Computed example of a mutant assay.
Amino acid sequence: MTATVSNFYYGAVTLIAAYLMACLGAGLGLRCTTRSLRRPQRRAGWLALGAVSIGCGIWTMHFIAMIGFSVQGALVSYDMTKTLLSLVVAIVVVALGVFLVGYRGVSSVNLATAGTVTGLGVAGMHYLGMAAIHTNGTIGYDAPTVILSVVIAVAAATAALWAAVSIHTLWASLGASLVMGVAVTGMHYTGMAAVSVHLTGVAETAQSSTDLLSFLLAMLAGPLTVLLVSAVIVMFDPDMLLNDEDWDRAAPAQQGTGAASQARRPSQPA
């Protein structure tokens, strides 16, 4: 028997919260990559923080949205190992793309390669997270809808990576993060539209939404903390004291001062 599946067990609140998490991760990632370009000597650190922010944002979006997932007549639980592995996958694949464009730029070939790898990885994270689901039924997928979700993931990842190294102003980054949030959340719900559940037995007990909610909230605590720490680092970075136009004027002056200091420095005796 095919069960009725819902992605909005708690109404629109999970959709809104998931979207906001996707936007937060994207926004922090964009600001971190901007700082990596402004501070080449610390590029690796800022790119790593940006990758972790985006990866945690995507993963958090996915599992907040999954709080609203329910199957009528079936118990739903999650395998902890696969759930945590999906978080690792999200961070690693985003890091691959971010470091690739952060160090090699956004030429057509480079951007296409990074976007494809990252997009496939994000889709892999989504379906690995779905594979972590345990229920008294068999989960099936509509192939064309799955393919569409993967295409959306690749397109969203490519756009995100382009924005990461091409958009530098604060307001442009905020606008880009809102658009990226739509794309990433849209990918998730497109993938969820492909899901069907065929019940193979009857649940012995009633669904405990409280237990499931407690598990997912416990899983979300770590990534949410990481996003909070990342936000604090970005907000209190000295660069925030300058707006983007001020930085663009100050950077050449600082470089000139450094060059002049080098010129005045006496040579060391042999």
Rank of each mutant, 00 (worst) to 15 (best):
M61L: 15
A263M: 04
P223V: 11
A112V: 15
L100R: 07
N243G: 12
V71E: 06
T200F: 03
V94F: 00
T113L: 15
L220S: 08
G175F: 01
G73P: 07
M240E: 15
G11Y: 05
R38E: 13
V89M: 09
S214Q: 10
A156V: 05
M80S: 15
S173Y: 08
S196D: 09
M21C: 15
F99Y: 05
A65P: 01
S53Y: 01
V52P: 09
S209W: 11
V197G: 02
S108F: 14
R265L: 12
M192I: 10
S196F: 06
L178T: 00
T190S: 07
A90R: 02
Y127I: 00
V117P: 05
H198W: 10
A259N: 11
T210D: 00
I167Q: 05
N136C: 13
L120R: 03
L37E: 12
A123T: 08
G25W: 07
L28H: 04
L213P: 01
F215H: 11
A132F: 02
T145Q: 08
F8V: 03
L224A: 14
F8E: 03
V154I: 14
G11W: 07
T205P: 09
V179T: 12
T4P: 01
A164F: 09
A156N: 03
S6N: 04
F215I: 10
V71G: 06
D239M: 11
V92R: 05
